[in-house]
Amino acid sequence: MGYAFLRPGLTREDPPVTSGRLFASLALVALAPGAAAAQFTTFVAPPPRVDTVIVADARLTPAPTADSLARANINNMKAWVDSAAGNAVDLRAEVATAAPLPQPGYFADGSPAPNTATPLPLIVLLGASAIGAGTVLLRRR
């Protein structure tokens, strides 16, 4: 048993390399968070100045609309969260692929008719039926 894989250029025939310093380093890395009673999860970077980038890219995006602006805001939040988690974020790609979101309730060619279905008649029928059945049961001897 040895740690030859830690030393490039060594072969199986070479004598095993054991290093007390290596063990000490690994132990320190493993135990330090516990000793500090803290959680070291990732590097938290300050949020980048995404607004400037978004505006510059939005000018390159053909025909930006209010909808795409709303989407860009969401992307900003995602970018901020990703950057806070230490993940690399390509803001240019995010903005370039952001498509205008359909606004709820807005008229689109070929869209179905608005939802006018209402359960109120059924509720009235069920309520009246329940009252009728309950009355019959109460009057039954």
């Binding site: 009235v124 309520g127 039926s129 329940a130 059945a133 309950g134 009355t135 049961l137 109460l138």
Partner: peptide, 17 residues
Amino acid sequence: TGGALVATGLLLVTFAG
């Protein structure tokens, strides 16, 4: 059961009304 049905029915009719 009759009482429960009447109460439920009244609730439903009241809601819709």
